[in-house]
Design a binder for these strands. Structure first.
Lengths: 194, 194
DNA sequence: GTCTATAAATAGATAGAC
DNA sequence: GTCTATCTATTTATAGAC
């Protein structure tokens, strides 16, 4: 979706509907005909994203793998979603930074489902004594935060004249996933077996 | 600074210079007289923020505490900066999400200093064999990511009609800092003695 | 359904009085 | 240095032809 790319890069206010239309190969009146308003178009983009994330995460939570494997797959899934929908992290972080003024109740339900699936994984791990008890909100932030922030870091790194800065050094995708899987399990497990 | 609050909430394009002026108790022409343009004003806000962060972090890196204590103080300092400058996390995440189009070379130097100080802490820890070798960029993301993302999560949680959602539950500041300190050290240390 | 043209509002920036 | 008034460009949104 062209709108998703534009919104994630320039923000809701930074994008002109005209530009979205041109990028999508239609004209402005078409967008208004199909979506009603700029805000409705934006909401559709956010919802599509949240449905994708929620679907993937819920499937993992429902599976019957051990909880540590579920956490590893959760991290892999979020990393994969970032590949298939590059606008996911910046759009999410922008919306949260703004205080979520364009998150209506229907969209909040979708966000809620994502977190609920993650929390269910933690709960399963605690019940099986694989995990110690951790505040699920903090655990969620600890896993999602680096994945989201690294994605926008790479976005900023891609601009010209940045590559030489150490903080914008390229990080291999597999290295990122492995690091986050290890860190997450170190955070969650009681013993030192990993 | 009123401009910082406005930019962090609504983004560069989402704020009208008129609104910033009103919030600051002056008029628009005054802002242009003193700052030249909206972009220059924005850059001053970002630079002020980065100078504050860089100063705090560099002081910690320079101190002669053991590396694990430095990491703990780093986390505490970032959490404190978020209190004294609430616009810090959203402004940072927004700018990175946009690809940093308003980060000029002088501002990048300030960003570079923050990361350099953090990397120096890691290096000291590795040299003293307190830490295992970890990609410093990933370690930086793993610590900054949750702190930044939790800050904007709380911002979104503050909007009306959100408090009942589990993902917007309040998290005690001390609990956040303690959790991040523990998680960071679990990530960095070879053994699990903590 | 798809387009062109345009209305109506708003924004960044400046001129010029004091 | 500080203000009011205004210019100019841009933007969301819609009217109306086809």
């Amino acid at each position: 979706m062209a709108a998703a790319t534009a919104f994630s890069r320039d923000g809701f206010d930074g994008v002109a509907v005209d530009d979205i239309a041109r990028a999508a190969g239609v004209n402005k009146a078409m967008l208004y005909y199909h979506f009603g308003s700029k805000q409705d178009l934006y909401r559709e983009v956010v919802r599509d994203m949240l449905r994708a994330v929620g679907g993937a995460v819920a499937a993992i939570a429902r599976s019957d793998a051990p909880a540590p494997a579920k956490v590893e797959r959760f991290i892999q899934a979020v990393a994969d979603l970032r590949e298939s929908r590059p606008w996911f992290p910046p759009l999410m972080l922008r919306e949260m930074s703004a205080g979520g003024p364009r998150l209506d109740p229907d969209t909040l339900v979708l966000m809620k489902a994502v977190f609920a699936a993650f929390a269910a994984i933690l709960e399963a791990g605690s019940a099986a004594r694989d995990f110690r008890r951790v505040n699920p909100v903090l655990a969620y932030m600890t896993i999602m935060g680096p994945l989201m922030m690294n994605a926008v870091r790479e976005r900023a790194a891609a601009e010209p004249g940045r590559a030489h800065l150490p903080m914008f050094a390229a990080v291999d995708r597999h290295e990122l996933v492995t690091h986050m899987q290890q860190t997450a399990l170190r955070m969650l497990t009681k013993d030192r077996s990993r």
